[in-house]
Design a protein around this nucleic acid. Structure first.
Lengths: 209, 209
DNA sequence: TAGATTGTTAATCGATTAACAATC
DNA sequence: TAGATTGTTAATCGATTAACAATC
């Protein structure tokens, strides 16, 4: 695998996890082969786009037949570096951080929260699941020692940028932020946002006043 | 206001909430005027794009000066129909639904959860905050009586499509789904997804294996 | 007035789609 | 072989950006 081809459009990369998700469902249901047309119908994406997207990375299909579900799934996992467990730091042990850590939909899917940090002296020492909340002061040490590359930010908006700065300085390369502000980071660092409020506001435009 | 101009690109509409968010911050900090250049710098968007986006809806600025923060904020709120409280139905009273209902970042911002539904007989009758969990059987009646237009889905993937079907049949016009599947709904219904796993998988592509 | 910034047009850029030869 | 579907090219479509006259 030619490691992250930097010339692949981000929008193409962003669709790969959706393809993978469908392939997981197909694999579970016992399907062995799928065409770009069928996959497209499930995802609301044109078959041509799926074929084009995949062609950035190689030739995975067979004319007349389609794609082998297990094989394509394996390939996508490799491309996305999901052939390994990812350890994740969580910043913020409030309601939201707690929900993220405990709900654990992530843990079962290859992203394990291995350290939790909070500013508040009250929260330090508490356990969330089986992970103790540690002081923000320890963050750089822990992140470096464990060589963590991913972090989740779940602190209030007014502390999010500072959290990001510390994370980046400690070597974090990817941040998933639940804070409703744009984070400024070097462009060697990936950032994605989760913001239900923005999503709701996007929809009300289309709803009758 | 010419009600939802249907010919405005969705990607333009999707940026309006971001503009609004910045304007809220600016207003709080006491700024009275802002140029497209300054706003763009905050958001990582080119000034030309901001001006173009806004020009779909009217002329809100003044040459030589920029935009009046409070005025533009008001206009965007109107365009997005955020000049009112929105009542929202929540489907799913598990860990996730509970976290969404209690965390309440939404309530303070104009989206109030007014009814919670769950399948499980055990959960029915429980209170989350001050809202009782009701049976799914009551959903159509409650949604119709209260004329709810928005709903949040926080049930497992295998129940999400059924939940969406019931919601749509009950008159819901916008769905925010936390379930990791694509929902099939009539195109008169808006759907947005919140999926931290997909966001993480998008980032690992760029990280060293 | 001089300087700044808008709103808008036209040019550029990039993403999506249609079409089809290759081939299983 | 006949039918189906890929991978890829070229055409289309749509979004972003640069540039500038208008004007505060």
């Amino acid at each position: 695998m030619p490691s992250p081809l930097s010339n692949i459009p981000a929008i193409v990369v962003a669709r790969l996890p959706l393809y993978l998700r469908s392939l997981n469902i197909l694999a579970e249901s016992g399907s062995t082969v799928i065409s770009s047309a069928e996959l497209g119908a499930r995802l609301g994406i044109t078959p041509a786009q799926i074929r084009k997207d995949l062609s950035f990375f190689g030739e995975f299909g067979k004319q007349g037949t389609g794609y082998d579900v297990l094989y394509l799934r394996e390939q996508l996992k490799n491309i996305l570096h999901l052939d390994q467990q990812w350890s994740v730091a969580l910043v913020g042990a409030g309601d939201l951080g707690r929900a993220i850590a405990q709900h654990g939909g992530l843990g079962e899917r290859g992203f394990r929260i291995v350290a939790i940090f909070d500013q508040s002296t009250e929260k330090i020492g508490e356990q969330i699941g089986d992970i103790p909340v540690e002081s923000m002061d320890l963050l750089p040490i822990v992140v470096r020692r464990r060589q963590l590359q991913l972090a989740i930010i779940a602190v209030p908006a007014n502390r999010a940028q500072r959290a990001a700065d510390v994370l980046v300085a400690s070597g974090i390369k990817g941040i998933l932020s639940y804070a409703p502000i744009r984070l400024h980071v070097p462009d060697t660092v990936q950032v994605r946002y989760i913001d239900p409020l923005i999503a709701l506001q996007e929809m009300t435009y289309y709803l009758g006043g």
